[in-house]
Design a protein around this nucleic acid. Structure first.
Length: 483
RNA sequence: GGCCCCAUCGUCUAGCGGUUAGGACACCGGCCUCUCACGUCGGGAACAUGGGUUCAAUUCCCAUUGGGGUCACCA
């Protein structure tokens, strides 16, 4: 691997669903990797054994795959820096922690959790606002009793750590806020900062892009790189995506996991589009294809202010993606909708779905809505909405529907324009207005009181099915009770 | 509370010293119309406050206020 090419990573914890905010960090990393022809590494940070589950690992894979954020190295694809699960890299952390101990930059600490909790509690009693910091009890200890120990970093308490953040610019943090943080737990499992640094270092990561909530971890991590004798990577922190209330975005605020959006019929590129425009902009452009994003992306155009998640805007972006064939081709539209039709018990040929697409392109905001809108064209007979029937399929409508059916029977070339022309001619003969027949006919054809344009529906349905539906509805209407 | 970060319409944002402060979503009207959408036209809506710097500040600096993050043998 060449040392000057970009290597970025996404390092989620498999502790549940893949959060939409996590997807955003994954996306920004992925975009940068693709833009710079670098590598996007996926690493699973499963060191929290209390919360990590194999199912969550699968959810992460599924989610990223669905989004099309493919990784160049990591689980499933391998790579020269594996393994890519932290729990499989324990020997590595042990090795590096021992080096730090040997060079006097870290030490074994035998204080127990209970002792420290007690100290923390005691301090809190004395001064509720005080911050407990490990007092360095074991710093100078030289004996090695046969007791459990953690490895602590010997952190400086003077001086500062400075770095230039790719989005926030120069950041300087005084070391007086630091403490001898734990590197390795007594069971040999690393804590976040140590695991991340050892991995990023040994995986050759050149740029770490993550949420702003991690900004506070950067100074200690830089200290670790230096103690380890390695050059720190670059850092880019992303402003946070908050709930509309300004709180941290969580389940309480609605759908926050990618899979929920997938299940709601969102398209992956629309999800990416909404997320990328959150904290990043490209002039006035709102809508992007994935390729356009790769081309346009850059850290300099990232904003610094936190923002609030807006479900309505998200839906609007999603709608835009379904409207534009440039963003969602007929092929991928059909591929996404077909399974949803199947779920409704409808079987439809891809060509038939594609042929019906022009009717719903502008109207359906999600694939779920698309499947619903398509339902009448693939269900035989169509399901008739009771309220719509009660209102429009009344006895008086029956003769009109029958007359229209016989008029259309005479139409030879079944195009939208021909059907419209013939219908209009007939309306004129009869002295009828389109308004008089449109709604009953619409209900006859689709079973609903709202639908795409009538002639478009006639065309998509085809001649024989259209006429059959008109007659069936006429039958229904004549049998309806007089209201 | 300590440390760090942030601050333009309700929301996402453009702006990188001189603009009638632009776009998008949302909202409100009009038009289109066979319904519902789509589309289209128009409208209301923002530079947190106070000091500087400058001929000139939304823009640069400082303070205040407000918001957020983080202070574990979680990540």
């Amino acid at each position: 691997m060449s040392t000057d090419s970009t290597r970025v990573r996404f390092a989620p914890s498999p502790t549940g669903y893949l959060h939409i905010g996590g997807v955003r960090t994954a996306l920004f990393n992925w975009l940068w990797a693709r833009k710079t022809a670098g590598a996007f590494v996926l690493r699973i940070e499963d060191t929290d054994q209390e919360r990590s589950t194999p199912e969550s690992v699968e959810v992460i894979f599924d989610s990223l795959r669905w989004l099309g954020l493919d990784w160049d190295e990591g689980p499933g694809v391998g790579g020269s820096c594996g393994p890519y699960f932290q729990m499989q890299r324990l020997a590595l952390y042990k090795e590096w922690s021992e080096r730090l101990i040997a060079s006097g930059k870290a030490y074994r600490c035998y204080c127990t959790k209970q002792e420290l909790d007690a100290q923390r509690e005691a301090l809190k009693q004395r001064d509720a606002k005080a911050t407990f910091r490990y007092p360095g009890t074991c710093r100078a200890r030289t004996d090695e009793p046969a007791l459990p120990f953690v490895v602590r970093f010997m952190a400086p308490t003077e001086g500062v750590v400075s770095y230039v953040d790719k989005v926030f610019g120069p950041v300087t943090t005084p070391n007086l806020a630091q403490q001898d943080f734990v590197l390795l737990r007594s069971d040999g499992v690393p804590l976040y900062n140590f695991g991340a640094v050892v991995d990023d270092m040994t995986m050759g990561i050149t740029l770490v892009a993550r949420g702003r909530d991690h900004m506070v971890n950067t100074p200690p991590q830089i200290m670790l790189y230096e103690a380890l004798g390695a050059k720190p990577p670059e850092f880019a922190h992303l402003p946070m995506m908050l709930a509309p209330s300004g709180e941290k975005l969580s389940k309480r605020h609605g759908a926050v996991s990618v899979t929920e959006y997938r299940d709601q019929g969102y398209s992956p590129n629309a999800v990416l589009n909404y997320l990328v425009r959150f904290g990043w902009s490209h002039g006035d452009q709102e809508v992007f294809s994935k390729d356009e994003l790769v081309a346009a992306f850059g850290w300099e155009a990232c904003g610094r202010g936190d923002g609030k998640f807006d479900a309505k805007k998200f839906l609007a972006v999603q709608h835009e993606h379904l409207k534009q064939p440039r963003l969602t081709s007929d092929g991928s539209y059909v591929q996404a909708v077909a399974p949803l039709l199947a779920l409704r018990g409808l079987s439809a040929q891809p060509e038939a779905i594609a042929a019906a697409l022009p009717m719903i392109r502008d109207r359906a905001r999600t694939y779920l809505e698309a499947a619903d809108a398509l339902d009448p064209y693939f269900r035989e007979p169509p399901s008739i909405d009771a309220a719509a029937a009660a209102k429009f399929l009344v006895p008086a409508a029956a003769p009109t529907l029958r007359a229209l059916a016989s008029v259309l029977e005479a139409v030879d070339s079944w195009t939208e324009a021909d059907v419209e022309a013939r219908t209009h001619a007939w309306l004129e003969e009869q002295g009828l207005a389109i308004k008089d027949v449109a709604q009953p006919a619409r209900v006859a054809l689709t079973g609903r009181s709202s639908s795409p344009g009538l002639y478009q529906v006639f065309f998509v349905l085809g001649k024989s099915r259209s006429i059959a539906r008109l007659l069936a509805a006429a039958e229904l209407a004549s049998g309806a009770k007089q209201s």
